[in-house]
Design a protein around this nucleic acid. Structure first.
Lengths: 143, 143
DNA sequence: TAGCTATTGCAATATTATTGCGATAACTGT
DNA sequence: ACAGTTATCGCAATAATATTGCAATAGCTA
């Protein structure tokens, strides 16, 4: 997960400016366990930021791999590793259909990842992305 | 895949009417290898159908499990089995990021499915849905 | 601290999705 | 085959989501 120091470094390294709005968006995303879309982020700033600004910031963050877009929820969530530089790992998400909490699947579990890759080696290319939908442990308990 | 006879049966069984617009939408989806959204379907009817109508038809088809919504493409694709009645199988999609062709993964391969389920037994519940992104065999060849 | 320019806010607009309601067409029973 | 019933459709209005151009502003550089 990125804090403001880390994001500062990432932005500067890539030639982007460190701005209030960008830090604000980061902060908001950092506080959320579920994916947020641009309008939800806006609301949380009490409309201090314009939607267009938020969209543009999200675009930059996506490029810098600070966050991921979760298709299932049409929202953005911070990358849960602060050094997510390659396409192969750390993209995969598990999305709970009840509470919407979204967790990154850390495929340090190489063995499992490899078994998926083997399975689909006909169709999978270098880059691929898995999104798993289900119900998380917490929600199962409180059922 | 559903043809017009099958859809007729499905609709009638569920108490829905068999209408021109519904058959038309089915036909269009049947001709497409990639997911289509409501507006794309409209265009293909040369605007014979209103968007709202298409949305409502898609809603019905979804309920009847005639098609699936592919989040990755924000579009609908026909279920590739004509008897898709349970949640457990036949929902999983492989989406090619180049040509957008989307194939259902028939998890008759119980063993593999089971290995995924085992892996995620803490988080997965009865129902779950996998969407795999990658590049399909054809696109790999022509690269 | 001044100057350069990336970034923001605003306004306009595009795209995607939903809803209410009167008109129409699909089924039902005769 | 036909009339009555009502699900479905088309249209219009509107909501929700996303994008763009441009002038004003704020972040960095020297």
């Amino acid at each position: 997960m990125f804090d403001s120091n880390q994001i500062t470094e990432v932005l500067q390294k890539a030639g982007y400016r460190v701005t209030e709005p960008r830090l604000k968006v980061l902060e908001i995303l950092g506080e959320s366990k579920k994916p947020l879309n641009a309008y939800e982020i806006c609301e949380k700033t009490k409309s201090n930021l314009d939607v267009s600004t938020v969209y543009r910031i999200l675009e930059v963050f996506k490029k810098l791999k600070v966050l991921h877009f979760v298709k299932d929820k049409k929202g953005y969530i911070l990358c849960q590793e602060s050094e997510c530089k390659n396409d192969k790992h750390c993209h995969h998400q598990f999305v709970c259909q009840k509470c919407e909490e979204t967790t990154e699947m850390h495929l340090d579990d190489q063995e499992f990842l490899k078994s998926i890759e083997d399975k689909f080696k006909d169709v999978l290319f270098a880059s691929h992305y898995f999104e798993f939908s289900g119900v998380c442990g917490n929600c199962r308990k409180n059922n």
